[in-house]
Amino acid sequence: MGRTLTFEIFRYNPTADDDRPRIDIFQLEETARLNIFTALNLIREQQAPDFMFDFVCRAGICGSCGMMINGRPTLACRTLTSDLPNTITLYPLPFFKLLGDLSVDTGVWFREVAEQIESWIHTQTEFDPQAEEERMDNATANKIYEAERCIECGCCLAGCATAQVAPDFLGAAGLNRIGRLMIDPRDQRDEEDWFKLISTDSGIFGCIGMMACDDVCPKDLPLLEVFAYIRRKMAAIGFSKKKEKAAAV
């Protein structure tokens, strides 16, 4: 027999003068293969027409529906209720600005990070429409793709202890983006540029190594490896700078 699920959901509409944060409780009959995407739409259509949340692709690809499901940041669209107990609590992702109920403003935050780390390929080469493309080793292309798979859902930041106390921390998503650019031979930034950008407390040295990001990443990005790579690289540059300084003295 199907279960009756109880949803305990954080509700708050910041645009309503008289609204206060609260928990609303909804009940829903579980059907086969019910996921949180379908469940929330049913709740909105049948019980709470003003209920705010975000879905776009509903296929685990676009990164819109990150939320706290029973205390864990993850993608709601691909979370099946059958993997959860009878009571399901839903909160918006922490760290990001709350827009209403379960909807948070990841877009503006990621745009600011993209500006800060200049997340485009830095090159002096002009595009020549008549020329053959510059060649690239396929292994390199695959490696870049692996890091490029981040969907900027924000789950890593919601799960990150540093981010909760240091709002300017780039987080795993920001650092992964830098790692992706560092391994791209088309990006002509040199070690000095990278060092300036991320050898800071808001960059790689802000991370205190608890690695919740790696645990919660819905795309299974190899964040441990990415962090290790960047740290090693930054440490090496740091040491050589120190040596240069000592030699100069």
């Binding site: 975000d54 776009v56 692709c57 296929a59 690809i61 676009c62 990164g63 819109s64 990841t106 877009g107 503006v108 990621f110 745009r111 969907i151 900027e152």
Partner: peptide
């Protein structure tokens, strides 16, 4: 939606 959430991404 934020541009990177657009359906092109799928």
């Amino acid at each position: 939606v934020p541009p990177r959430r657009s359906h092109s991404s799928a």
